[in-house]
Amino acid sequence: MAPLASDPLGLAIDTTFDDTSVAILRGKREVLANLTLSQFKDHEEFGGVVPERASRKHLEAIQPLLAQALTRAGVGFGELDYVAVSTVPGLLGSILVGLTVAKSLAYLLARPLIGINHIEAHPYANVLAHGELPFPALHLVAAGGHTLLIHQTGHFQWSIVGRSVDDAAGECVDKVAKMFGHAMPGGPAVDRLALTHAPAAHRFPRPMLNDPGLDFSFSGLKTAVLYYRRDHGGDLEEGPVLSAFFDAVIEVLIVKTLRAARRFRPKAVTVSGGLAASQKLRAAFEAAAAEAGLRLLYPPPELCTDNAAMVACLAAHRYAAGRFDDLTLDGRPNLLD
């Protein structure tokens, strides 16, 4: 193997969930391209090769996205120093498409292959935005099907110290939004309403708040909103109700995160994942972190949702450490086995 490049050019692919994402990164932080299929509203941008814009169409989307990413970054395949891909967690059939493309690239270009845990990569959106993380760090990852508290003592050294035992927070928000007639994903709509409406007087339950552990539960909160809505029927104003509901979600996330911070005494607390794009959540977290004297980091909204740039960023750290995978790398649907 050739000696490691000091300012490596990396390519990362993520097909773990609905979106197909490709990113090209220079060094550890310079994003040269960060494309997701759902960004492309106009098929013309795709250079005539038009995959149907639908979820889980990774095979049809990935080659045009690769070509587009190279063009945006102004580089060729031959200049890449490594190829990274998310291999866990997600729908196995989807993961394997990205994984096979990444292996083929690594093989054809004779470059290292780096398999990445998509969840581990989420906090690295903060590295892109703010620079290297101080360790130990505590991460709240609120993404797709997961709500997790992660304690990280160094690169590649992390453990899950708290997690949702039923629905993820973002899922709870999406499902409550859908109850009120908002399209999935409903997070942005709830955030907007919560910012512009004072919460209703009704206090929704804060599940597991008084449980001394660091796990979350959101299924019961969703049910509480359902009952409240059913019992109040037509004369319900959605803004104040959703605002009160969102306050409950945010309070649970903050209280548990602060509890974990007291236990692990991190040098920084990060918030990432789709829900971290919420303005109301950010404001509340900022206030709480300031009061507790914690350093809080969250990425810009475009790096909160699933993207391959964060995957590339973690991969760049793996490259620097010389930690590569071989071509028998496999995908795994579950985060925890």
Partner: peptide, 14 residues
């Protein structure tokens, strides 16, 4: 406690 919602993943395999 490992049984969580598969709404986003579609399929959880325990």
């Amino acid at each position: 406690e490992t049984v969580i919602s598969p709404t986003y993943t579609l399929v959880n395999i325990y």
